[in-house]
Simulated scan of single mutants.
Amino acid sequence: MYGCQQDLIKNPQLLPFLEYLCTTPNKLINCGIYLARQWYFKLSYITGKYDLEKQLKSNFNYKFIHSQAAQQTIRTVAEYFQSYRQLFHQYLGGELSNKPQLPRYGKKAGLGVITYPKQAIRLKQNKVRVPLGKKVKAAFKVDSFLLNFPKNIDFKKIRKIRIRPCNNYFYVEWVYKLEIELNQAMEKDKVLGYR
Rank of each mutant, 00 (worst) to 15 (best):
C31A: 15
I9A: 09
F41S: 12
K54Q: 10
I46E: 03
P12S: 13
F17N: 06
Q13I: 12
A36C: 08
N26F: 02
F41A: 14
L43V: 06
K54E: 12
Y50M: 13
P25Q: 05
L15D: 12
I33H: 01
T47W: 02
G48K: 09
Q13F: 14
F41P: 11
G48E: 08
F17V: 10
L15G: 07
L52F: 06
Y40L: 13
N59G: 03
L35P: 01
P12E: 14
L14R: 11
E53A: 12
K27G: 00
Q38S: 14
I33C: 00
P12V: 12
C31I: 02
C22N: 04
K10R: 13
F17S: 08
I46V: 15
Y20L: 09
Q55S: 05
I29T: 03
L21C: 06
Y34H: 09
K10S: 10
K57R: 14
I46D: 06
F17W: 08
C22P: 03
D51C: 00
Y50R: 13
T24P: 00
L14G: 09
F17R: 08
L14P: 12
Y45E: 11
Y50K: 12
K27R: 11
G32T: 01
N11R: 13
K27D: 01
E53M: 09
Y45H: 15
N59Q: 09
L52C: 01
S58M: 03
C22H: 02
I46M: 11
Y40H: 15
K42M: 14
N26T: 05
P12N: 08
Y50V: 11
Y40N: 14
Y45V: 06
L28H: 04
L52H: 03
N59D: 15
I9L: 08
N11G: 13
Y50N: 15
F41W: 15
L56C: 02
G48M: 05
N26I: 03
Y45W: 12
L14I: 10
D51K: 07
T47H: 02
K42N: 15
N59A: 06
S58T: 09
T23R: 13
L43Y: 11
N30R: 01
G48R: 11
L56N: 03
T47F: 03
W39A: 14
I46T: 12
S44W: 05
E53Q: 14
T23Q: 08
Q13D: 14
G32K: 01
Y34I: 04
E19P: 04
Y40K: 14
G48H: 06
A36Q: 09
R37F: 03
C31N: 06
C22S: 08
L14T: 11
T47R: 04
L56W: 02
L43T: 07
L35D: 04
L14D: 10
Y20G: 10
F41I: 15
N30G: 04
I9R: 10
Y34R: 07
T24M: 00
K54H: 05
G32V: 00
L21S: 08
Q55T: 05
K49A: 08
N26H: 03
Y34S: 11
C22F: 02
